[in-house]
Design a protein around this nucleic acid. Sequence first.
RNA 1: GGCCGAGUGGCGGAAUAGGCAGACGCUCGGGACUUAAAAUCCCGUGGGGAGUAAUCCCCGUGCGGGUUCGAUUCCCGCCUCGGCCACCA
Length: 1030
Amino acid sequence: MPRYNPATIEPKWQRYWEEHRTFAAPRLPKGEKLYVLDMFPYPSGNGLHVGHPEGQTATDITCRYQRMRGRCVLHPMGWDAFGLPAEQHAIRTGTPPRTTTQKNIDTFRRQEKMLGFSYDWDRELSTTDVNYFRWTQWIFLQLFDTWFDEAQQRGRPIAELPVPDDVRAAGESAVRRYQDEHRLAYQLEAPVNWCPELGTVLANEEVIGGLSERGGHPVVRIPLRQWMLRITAYADRLENDLAQVDWPESIKALQRNWIGRSVGAEVDFFIGSAADVGPNGKPAPAAFKAWRTERAAKGFPRTAGADVLRVFTTRPDTLYGATYMVIAPEHPFVERLTRPEQSAAVRAYCEQAARKSDLDRTELSKEKTGVFSGSYAANPANNRPVPIWVADYVLATYGTGAIMAVPAHDTRDFEFAKKFELPIVPVVDPGSSADIPRDEVLAGTTVYTGAGVAINSSSYDGTSTAEFKERITTALSQQGFGRRAVNYKLRDWLFSRQHFWGEPFPILHELDTDGHPTGAIRAVEESQLPVDLPEMPHFKPHGRPEPPLDEAPRDWLYPVIDGKRFKRETNTMPQWAGSCWYYLRFLDPKNQQAFIDSEIERAWMPVDLYIGGAEHAVLHLLYARFWHKLLFDRGLVSTAEPFRKLVNQGMILGEDGGKMSKARGNVVNPDDVVAEYGADALRLYEMFMGPLEATKPWSMEGVNGVRGFLDRVWRLITNERSETLELNAAVQPAELTGEQARVLHRTIRDVTGDIEKLSLNTAIAKMMEFTNFFTKETVRPREAMEKFVLVLSPFAPHLSEELWQVLGHGKTLAHEPWPTFDETAIKEDTIEVPVQINGKLRSRVTVPADASAAAIESAARAEPRVQELLAGKTIAKVIVPPNGRLINFIVRSEAPLVITSRDFQRAAEQRFTTAEFLLEHDRTLDALYLAGYAVECTLKALVMYLTPPATMNETFERLKSSAKMHYPEHLKEELKNLDCLLPIDLVKRLRRFEWSTNLRYESGRRPAGEVRGYLKTAAATIEWAKGEMQ
RNA sequence: GGCCGAGUGGCGGAAUAGGCAGACGCUCGGGACUUAAAAUCCCGUGGGGAGUAAUCCCCGUGCGGGUUCGAUUCCCGCCUCGGCCACCA
């Protein structure tokens, strides 16, 4: 009694694939290559999550399909295994992170294999393998050895960096320092986010609202020496090259947003030296004049001197409206600019700001705070002195850390100016428009941030905002006061972490004879790589920002090279490092000579399809692209972009519709699902849930549903009643009937198209339709069954392999050619064409598939029901769309309206309303006309009545005269009968009636069939209205 | 506050170069088989209405407008939900 039993079938085929190395990819592609990649998982202690197989099944289906299409497919899997949890586990239990990590990897590998993905397991790698991270270190050395040539917009070897003569003259160590300042990997003493709880420094991206992203612990800012990567140098290319990749627009937008390019101008405001400032804190006019003259002669300096406050603005056109300036509390000039009388207030403010966490700054954002420094700068546009304030709404880390404040045209400046009663001078006239209170803008009581026409701007008055920007930027640079400038939100990448469980930096710090660092650093020789992690005696945090590796054994920590003692860099790299290039290592994972063989790289790159979660939409993808561009610039890879096509899978929610989490108790474990329903059912369900990109809730009933489908497929082909595994008797070597062929070929065509579009949920629906059809067939031609099994195989590979074997095949179907379809077999002889009348579906006609528009029309006209509906009507127009999939008759009624006084009389005799009477005698059009007319009259009357100063009598007279103009004589009688004057709550009642019926009817667009429903309402309304009037 | 995305039956979702709304699945209801149950198979399942019936009609894709012979699809204006960023000058 062999029923479908995934518990035996699935391990059997997994073993087969492994033994036969069915999915091993060659060193170099044979034929057309396809590189399909999943974002490799972090092997957490919780094991695989149902979210992982979602994207992985999609890539697996693509791979299995493309293999059968003859593509040479590379599909690898590995582990992003450095990370904090293993280290924290080590601190708690003393278990070395490598041990924990290995155990987790083993669990993940078992689970991945359990799901039957067609990975080439020979290429498995982990970022924590020494053989892997030695090359991560090697790439870091490339970053260390590269500077960015702005002019050429590319990274070049540091040896090619032009060194200014004065630096060269100052000696070798000056040159080295100059080079170190220009490397893509450089050190910086910077305020960093120190999290005492985690014992580490975090990147800005890892801090959310003043708390650590992981664990939610408080974070404080302290200065510390850090490694930085100069990603900002690549900002423009990272943005521009988005144009050449096939990624979702939303992800591109996220990246652009993160890079945050904005175009504007830098402008210098003169502050002068102490000697240039008068007793009131304002620059002395003479000094300012001298400065202006000097600037006109020398131009705008590259770096701002001490005599100016440099600002960045995207609105140089509002320069005349800059009535004050603001500098960040961390700005280097704060102390200098603070006048004695303000120093207590400023110091208190800055101390308070320093204590504030990011969270506080965000939460207090509603209320602006700040303090006057006592000093002034000179506005270069109008030569007026403007006060300089210190406020934390200006960020030290963006632009120059100082702004010119234009309260009339910037919301934040406006709020600030209001609070501190600073002058507000409008310089942009918004012009008259309905939504903008122009008067208030011109009075300075409302902020306006849009474009307009310049005012209060000297000779620029009347200039449009866009033109003004251009002109003033040009003028400023001619005068030496400013220049065009571009700014980015993107900051350089803080690349060091104070963890043990990460890649050590291949960097040595030179020590003097006393064992103190000299400040000089050098790279570890390539030949000395890898720098492995030392055995650590313990993993206890020592509570200082220095990394755990500071406690490493001395022989590791203090190497001696050429008789000189060094100290190793003890920071380690962040988890992002390993994931920045793993897609390259998969191509050549065992190479001991190079990070990748360049022939192999050229042959397989780029990644053709990359699928993973949207949580990596910004950071991982930006970092990886950055590294890739560096490698590209250094001639180490052949493509400018690593990932040609990117797809983000959506999140899978718990059955309760919330995010899966232990706390909610709604986590679904793949092991359980596979044990109960099988891996094929899990795979199929995850694809059937909905579109890949959508967020979808899990449903066990849904899993059960697709399992039912697999059961039906099993019964379709095998004989479940037999003792042994054998074919169902209905499966015979028979010719396909026309309909069978149509179903088969349509299924092949649709599934093929859907896989190409990654529309996998609809692909499965098509296969279900196939199964539903053939289940009813008593003869199931073998050919159809075989082709169907091949089509199903990318989705449910285990079941398909088993059925393929039952169908008599000796080896795996993984490399069988993908079935082709025959368009002529799909074509039906006849098609059913919907017939619309006035846009409403009324009937269908069956016509030959190749029928012309004229043939469709005559067939439609011949249809009895259509004839009935068109009887007595004039066909104004017939529409048949080019594809011939529909016909629409546009008709106008020319049925004469024959409502006579006799009708009214007889209706009254039979105690009907006139409308009811007409309806009773099948004179629906007349009845509708009457009803609509009556309702319209009622409405008109209502409107007139409600319009003062009309009295009831006046209203009635007006109504009658209006009726005289538009309506036939005999209907006026009915109007009189209505005697209409209505109470207010008729409005509600009428609203429910679609009174436009009348108008539409008059224009002939309403089909007669629709009349009855309206009529009832209308008749009832009239009746009710009459009642009201008594 | 900014950017992006989404609103369709009891549920997950189909269908958009504008053309039969609700494919496929779940749920639920009915039936067949069975001593019975499970399993399986068949039928029905957006709401409302008319009819003994075959069948027919009306409404219906978040709300309000618009374009069109025809709008879930396109345009304008809102509402709601979700995601990301958030004082970026």
